[in-house]
């Protein structure tokens, strides 16, 4: 992984003349085409269909073209904006917690010298279990009367009577956020752990000789070296979290009183409860626009736009 090795770039085109350049292009196309065609087929086609759907008023099998009517309806609907707000709160809290706790755990695990693999697998487990299953087990643990969480909190005296965690707007939102934190931390931890292992030990040794405190070492060595991975990881995580559906669908279905109705849940409820497929598609397209904005940050962070995929 010596960086100087990578500067050679693609095989030199000019030296081989035009014919080879053409051949070169064809070879490139041959390598890239399969994925491109595949994605165009299985993503662009359904996405195009979803966009077309968003331009129609759809009642089951009957539909009529309404232009951007659904968009007007959606952006003037209070439910959309409150759902967007919920989405932002949910995403921001989850991602911040994933990063902070993930980094903390990575720092801890990086210092473990015994049974490293065992520890790593243990912490990865919440991420390996399917989110819907994880949410189901939490649903059971949070059960007000028979759940183990209320029992534990009551036995240590933290609460005096059972709490219906998913029954009140704020505690329901906090609950689904905590479950998503549980699920999402391991992946961030994995990224951070990988990042930590690339920081040369010599840097820390030198810092120690210079008398830097552990906090200073963290601030001036660890953080800067992890910055790139943190940005990439966070952006990926934002994209994944803002479109996350499973946990909330299983635990609250968006309630109570819409307190946990993030955009993907609103989309689902609009499509399959209200049977308004056109409006649902509109919400999806708008959500896509929001996520797209984040992806631009992501691309910038990866700097892939600048070096065109090679160094």
């Amino acid at each position: 992984m010596n960086p100087t090795n990578r500067t050679a770039a693609a095989l030199p085109a000019p030296r081989y003349g035009r014919r080879l350049k053409w051949a070169q292009r064809r070879a490139a196309a041959a390598f890239l085409a399969p994925a491109f065609i595949f994605l165009a087929f299985v993503v662009v086609f359904p996405l195009g269909q979803a966009f077309v759907t968003s331009l129609y008023r759809i009642r089951g099998l009957r539909s009529s073209f309404v232009g951007f009517d659904n968009y007007v309806r959606t952006v003037t609907d209070e439910a959309f904006w409150s759902s967007l707000g919920t989405s932002l709160v949910f995403t921001a809290s989850c991602v911040a917690a994933h990063l902070a706790i993930g980094l903390g755990l990575a720092l801890l695990l990086n210092r473990v010298t015994v049974a490293r693999t065992l520890f790593r697998i243990a912490f990865l487990m919440p991420w390996i279990i399917a989110p819907a299953i994880g949410a189901t087990i939490f649903l059971w643990m949070l059960e007000p009367q028979f759940g183990v969480i209320n029992y534990l909190l009551q036995s240590v005296g933290a609460i005096s009577e059972p709490i219906a965690w998913l029954g009140r707007p704020w505690s329901a939102l906090v609950s689904v956020i905590l479950v998503d934190v549980w699920r999402g931390v391991p992946f961030m931890m994995l990224l951070m752990l990988a990042g930590l292992q690339t920081i040369p030990i010599e840097l820390y040794e030198a810092a120690r000789i210079d008398g830097a405190t552990p906090l200073q070492q963290f601030r001036y060595i660890t953080l800067p070296n992890l910055a790139y991975l943190m940005i990439v990881g966070t952006t990926l995580d934002i994209i994944n979290t803002i479109r996350h559906f499973d946990i909330i669908a299983v635990m609250t279905g968006g309630g109570p009183v819409s307190a946990t109705e993030v955009l993907p849940v609103l989309l689902y409820n609009t499509a399959f409860r209200a049977n308004r497929l056109g409006e649902a598609a509109t919400i999806g397209i708008l959500l896509l626009g929001i996520v797209l904005a984040f992806s631009i940050v992501y691309i910038r962070a990866m700097r892939l736009d600048r070096d065109g995929g090679r160094d």
Partner: peptide, 12 residues
């Protein structure tokens, strides 16, 4: 393609 909400794509 990575960020399409799944629920949007079910029917298409």
């Amino acid at each position: 393609t990575k960020m399409l909400p799944e629920t949007l794509l079910i029917i298409p």
